[in-house]
Nucleic acid binder design. Structure first.
Length: 216
DNA sequence: CGAATGATACCCT
DNA sequence: GGGTATCATTCGG
């Protein structure tokens, strides 16, 4: 007997605002193992985060907030715990959660999850029928496509538990707990333009997890 | 390795 | 206001 969407909904309670009111590096680490939950008319699609990147305030030359508050970066200067979703390379979306911005307008990029719930829906939305499950959301844009997250979620409050939210592990869905796995860190990806900021080890992932976008 | 693809930021009139 | 270089990626060759 498998768990229905209704049965897993209650345990997947959204993280509260205070979780995100910490330095972005701290939040980025703490988010490993936390679930991204997406609720659509089809049901729930969800899985634990296995890879993140921390982006700081305007002084972080790799962060979008380096340009100050613009139309695009407005969510980064808003309340923590809201989503910042942007279009990159003209065709891909990336999901961030705003963190600690009372002091620096930062955000955490969610780079990969391990699909657990709604795998068939995720695979269909990805359009990759033969991909192994663990690789369906192994990248920031793949994750957004798989979970049907687009810019309509830009600014969305992730603490409400409506449509899209983040939930702490512990639910009876066979979760992998963060403490069971070693956390690795390294330079962020695709930010070579950021000078010495590019070398900061602000990318975090669960060591050895197959759903991480790139190993080592 | 390079194309796809379009919003954005930034510079210039 | 208008032109343009750039881009927190992915996929296929």
């Amino acid at each position: 007997m498998s768990a229905t969407s209704a049965e897993v909904r209650a345990p997947l309670k959204p993280l509260g605002r205070s979780f995100f009111d910490r330095p972005t590096e701290t939040v980025a680490r703490a988010l490993l193992g936390v679930w991204v939950v997406r609720s659509t008319p089809d049901g729930l699609s969800a899985g634990p985060i296995v890879e993140t990147e921390a982006y700081g305030g305007p002084d972080d030359l790799a962060s979008h907030s380096r340009a100050g508050r613009t139309r695009r970066t407005t969510p980064m200067f808003g309340e923590v715990g809201h989503a910042y979703v942007y279009l990159v390379y003209g065709m891909h979306q990336c999901l961030n959660v705003v963190a600690y911005n009372g002091r620096e307008a930062g955000a955490v990029l969610i780079r990969a999850i391990a699909p657990v719930l709604g795998v068939d829906d995720i695979r269909r939305r990805r359009g990759r029928p033969t991909d192994p499950t663990y690789r369906l959301c192994s990248g920031p844009a793949k994750l957004c496509q798989g979970l049907a997250v687009d810019r309509s979620f830009d600014g969305h409050d992730l603490t409400l538990g409506e449509g899209l939210w983040l939930a702490a592990p512990g639910a009876p869905v066979g979760l992998r707990v963060q403490s069971e796995t070693q956390i690795a860190s390294g330079a962020r990806i695709g930010v070579d333009y950021a000078g010495e900021w590019a070398a900061r080890p602000w990318r975090f992932w669960l060591a050895g997890n197959r759903s991480v976008s790139r190993q080592r």
